[in-house]
Amino acid sequence: MDADRRDEMTDASLDRELQTLLGVEPSPEFVARVRVRIADASPPAASWFGAWRIAASIVAVAAVATVAFVFTRDGGRNAPSTPSVLDSRTFALFSSQTPDLNGRGLSVSAEPASPVPRTHTAAQHESATSRAEPEILVDRRETAALRALIFGTREGRIDLAPVLAATTPSVMELPPVVDIEIPAITIDPIAPGTGGEGVRQ
């Protein structure tokens, strides 16, 4: 009990000594100096707001750039269905110039017969098409025939009126039926052999 009391007193005296030791006051100018340093520092709200605003701007610009990049890339990939390519193909078939009947066959990847300036989009499309789809080939003779027909029709060299006017005959006149004469079939009996019946030959 006495030992406990002595410990308690020691604790109390220790605390008093510590309080005395740490009870040092700062100089009177201390707070004023802190105020001066804080006045030199940037205000907290403004700096926080500014930093937040800058970060938001950076994120927004990055998002727009990403979206633009993705759209541009996807646009190039989906080009096979774009009308620019179809235009070039159509132009090749319906050009006003005389077709080269002895020329090459037409294919999707082939250049048009006329000297049409190729656009960058068309070139991109062709390369994209060659990557994405199998090449479709049309027979050269068929192509030449079609071109000749089309341009001949345009220039009046070929008249399609009879073809268009031609109709399928309503009743077909059949030749008279002639009976087929089938001669009677006669079967001759087989001549007996020289040996007797049942004799091994």
Binding site: V24, R33, V34, R37, I38, A41, P44
Partner: peptide, 21 residues
């Protein structure tokens, strides 16, 4: 050390001010 302690306390207050929000 009194002067060093004041310098350090000042620095701590300036840091506290910067993130006072």
């Amino acid at each position: 050390h009194r002067q060093d302690a004041e310098d350090v306390a000042q620095e701590a207050f300036v840091k506290a001010y910067r993130c006072f929000s």
